[in-house]
Write a protein that binds this DNA or RNA. Structure first.
Lengths: 141, 141
DNA sequence: TTTTTATACTACCATTTCAGTCAGGATTGA
DNA sequence: TCAATCCTGACTGAAATGGTAGTATAAAAA
């Protein structure tokens, strides 16, 4: 029951973009050095964010990345699911064929209900909430 | 972000005990055949449940396992943490030294807050809630 | 006290998942 | 053109996960 580094890094990448890619696209290498993640690995991670429509990418000179929508419209749920796929505490939550008795299984029902609650809470947290806390940090300096 | 089979099987073992070990201890092999888990593997899993005080074990003839406390006092959180260790979505939640800047990291704060909410919800679900749904199942037959 | 019935525990193995790298390809602006 | 920049599939080493084998230990029954 862990968030993988993919999920964690995904969040940090988006936070970085929210802070530094307001006027023009931000370079991969700038994200990489600022977040202390290798450029190679960032390129893999940001690909997913691009494919799921959370960031826009621009190639060639003056290229880079920007958020595809405003921070308040990007939820923690979207971010983690972009990076790790659907959140499914147990496989029978999304794949009904996974266990034959799932229709009638008390355990499955509990997991499904918990899964739903977790997703709901992750949906209620947006990138903007993190930005607030970043700004407080800067003000304190 | 998955519940491992350890966690899932742990729940099923406890549910099995709640249903069938009311008067006298239930044998490992009976749990195994009823839950369709190998006896060997069950023995590993139930060991943890015993060590964390969720079940009592009795050796020798007439031995077996029983719940160590009533179902309503056993939460999903206890079960999963018994089987998988503390729930920590990210390592810095429990290990403050894990990331040097954790004191001042917006991302860490978000994960910690989410972690807290998830644990709270898991604490609010008890084995008794599952039993209700099991009984409904039996009544419907 | 011996035998039988059970659980307790440690070491080990196979498979899958995860984190991260490499090398080169594709696209765009100047 | 060509330099800047992102795109992508194949690959690798390490760690976690799922599961098995075998022996030790305890309790009850004979």
């Amino acid at each position: 029951m862990k968030i993988s580094t993919k999920g964690r890094y995904g969040l940090r990448i988006l936070l970085d973009l929210a802070l530094y890619a307001k006027e023009e696209p931000r370079l991969m290498k700038d994200i990489a050095s600022s977040q202390e993640i290798s450029e190679k690995y960032i390129s893999r991670l940001i690909l997913k964010l691009n494919q799921t429509g959370l960031v826009d990418s621009f190639r060639g000179a003056k290229g880079g990345f920007m958020l595809a929508k405003p921070p308040k419209e990007i939820s923690l749920l979207e971010i983690v699911e972009a990076m790790e796929g659907n959140i499914a505490l147990v496989d029978c939550v999304f794949d009904k064929d996974f266990c034959p008795k799932s229709e009638n299984c008390s355990a499955c029902k509990v997991w499904a209900s918990l899964n739903k609650k977790i997703r709901k809470q992750m949906k209620e947290i947006s990138l903007k909430d993190l930005l607030k806390s970043e700004k407080n940090k800067i003000n304190r300096l």
